[in-house]
């Protein structure tokens, strides 16, 4: 079960928002204006089951999200959802991967400490013996130009 974010985890001044998540879930999130730069040369990798629950994360995922591996495993991937990300982007993501296709886009992720980081994300369905058994997501460092374009675009979407 995804818990609300806690003030004691937040670094710096924060704002509050309530996110309406997939499946009717709601979550109170606390967020700041502190950006963590994406580290050069690293990939953030995770795998989920077919319901989007996290099965596996690498160290870069742990480092950038600020959560421990134990806190992440079994949680829905939307634990990273930032209020600035429009629902339309996630609708497009899920529509694409449920259709068995690969999704790619720029995503602003929310850290446990309330800060954020931008990624270029690619999500592919994991197909074993013809069945989708989960999804693998790989994030890499985005160009600042693409991030700025995404900020403009996402501000126009709901």
């Amino acid at each position: 079960m995804l818990k609300d974010m806690q003030p004691e985890d937040i670094i710096g001044e924060y704002k509050e928002a309530v996110l309406n998540l997939y499946g009717g879930m709601k979550r109170k999130v606390l967020f700041t204006e502190i950006e963590t730069p994406y580290p050069d040369g690293k990939l953030i990798v995770s795998s989920t089951d077919s319901d989007g629950l996290i099965k596996k994360v690498n160290q870069a995922f742990v480092d950038m999200s600020c959560y421990t591996e134990e806190e992440l495993i079994g949680m829905p991937h939307c634990i990273l959802r930032h209020p600035d990300m429009p629902s339309a982007a996630y609708k497009d993501l899920w529509g694409t991967i449920l259709d068995g296709r690969t999704w790619q886009g720029y995503v602003k992720n929310l850290r446990k400490d309330g800060g954020y980081y931008w990624v270029k994300a690619t999500v592919i369905p994991n197909i074993r013996k013809g069945q989708v058994v989960g999804y693998t997501s790989v994030r890499r460092k985005p160009s600042r130009l693409k991030v700025n374009e995404s900020i403009k675009l996402y501000s126009t979407l709901s």
Partner: peptide, 13 residues
């Protein structure tokens, strides 16, 4: 191996 192949597939895009 399947995981690495999935990873290579995502990176090749």
């Amino acid at each position: 191996m399947e995981f690495m192949i999935d990873l290579m597939d995502t990176l090749a895009i």
